[in-house]
Design a binder for these strands. Structure first.
Length: 135
DNA sequence: GCCAACGTTGGC
DNA sequence: GCCAACGTTGGC
């Protein structure tokens, strides 16, 4: 089962907002590489939820509850959205600084290309981050 | 607030 | 089709 990571500014929409809402449409992605990852998501895939700008940490796990569909907010029709639901918060958030310092995460897509808002996470990276989060 | 990374746009 | 200019993201 593939794993993913999405970024969001907690000022705009944080993990707490997802928990409050129960599920949300993950739209507004306007980057081709990110869109390809959205299209590759399947229902049930687990997704790290990362807070950018404020927090700078993976704070929780979400799950894909609806696969890619046309993003209604995109007039060009080129981009897609998925639907996410909250799974659980991490016991301890894993900060960007810790991730950068962890050799097992050196190849992680989000570290390699900091502006990518939706990125794949390998099995090894996923379990390393879970371990850093305290399980 | 600044700057690096990187994607997009538009003139040629 | 190239490339300079510009806009956006996101860490510091």
């Amino acid at each position: 089962m593939p794993h993913w990571l999405v970024k969001s500014e907690p000022n705009t929409y944080g993990y707490a907002d997802l928990e409050r809402d129960g599920r949300t449409v993950w739209d507004g992605v306007r980057n081709n590489a990110a869109a390809l990852h959205l299209k590759a998501m399947a229902v049930g895939d687990e997704v790290f939820f990362y807070h950018s700008q404020e927090g700078l940490a993976v704070v929780g796990i979400a799950r894909v509850s609806r696969p890619a569909f046309p993003d209604a907010s995109d007039p060009s029709g080129r981009f897609v959205a998925v639907e996410l639901e909250p799974l659980r918060p991490l016991k301890r958030p894993v900060t960007l600084a810790k991730m950068k310092a962890e050799p097992a995460l050196a190849e992680m897509a989000m570290l390699r290309q900091s502006r990518l808002s939706v990125s794949p996470v390998t099995e090894g990276q996923w379990s390393a981050i879970l371990k850093m989060a305290g399980g």
